[in-house]
Design a binder for these strands. Structure first.
Lengths: 123, 123
DNA sequence: TCAAGCGCTTGACATTCTCAAGCGCTCTTT
DNA sequence: AAAGAGCGCTTGAGAATGTCAAGCGCTTGA
């Protein structure tokens, strides 16, 4: 891993952060409302707790999410976005806008008559 | 993996697409100008060719990138964004805006004196 | 009293990503 | 004319990243 000039670029670094699996999903869920841990897992849909814990840990260290322990005994935690986190609304909105416009993966993209199938390899 | 309702949501699917490693980097590079394969690898900085080939393949199938073979003999290819791809400018811009505002990772986030290293597991 | 929920963690596995090398070819440099 | 260096990829083997199932101690609602 030699230092290439890209690593000096904040945009490059941001992308690095946001492309980690589930990060954008987590932020999207948290933009709606604060959540507890398992609750958040359900809101996101599909994350396993191991990964979620790792992501929340990183996001907290990056100052995007804040964790409030409401009670230890009946364990209850609350994750919510910091100001920096809320500012990611713009990113989510942009994705949202693009999705509505171009993510019509249900309707085939071009009507290719000879193609047997568009082969949309979604998960 | 049972079907959870999220998979019906285009935003969810878009995030799924965009979070694949290097995808946003590739789009950002391609927003600047079309590129050849190795050239693109350099522009992105840090991708290995195996992954790049896989991403371009998917992005082409998704209708975001188009591939033009300019000559086979001295191999020369050109990758560029389709209309749908160019429309992702908005997403990149949003990330860009956020990065400038909040991605000041150069200044330490909290000054943790006992931590040996922030362990930013960048590539 | 008893199952269900809370917030996580651990260890074993599956998937994804990376590294190095190399194919046949052509264009530049020596 | 001979030797790189560059082009667009592909392969196989390894490293990193993400996932699964189970479970901890505890509380609440049935």
């Amino acid at each position: 891993m030699q230092a290439h000039d890209h690593s000096l670029c904040p945009v490059y670094d941001s992308i690095e952060l946001l492309q980690e699996k589930w990060v954008l999903h987590i932020i999207r869920a948290l933009l709606g409302a604060p959540h507890g841990f398992n609750e958040l897992a359900r809101a996101v849909g599909g994350v396993n707790t191991t990964t979620l814990a790792a992501r929340l840990d990183r996001l907290e260290r990056e100052g995007i999410v804040s964790k409030a322990i409401e009670s230890t005994m009946p364990p209850r935690t609350r994750y919510e976005l910091t100001d920096a986190g809320v500012a990611l609304q713009g990113v989510i909105d942009a994705i949202d806008g693009w999705a509505r416009e171009h993510m019509r993966r249900c309707q085939a993209e071009e009507f290719a008559p000879d193609e047997p199938e568009p082969a949309v390899s979604s998960h």
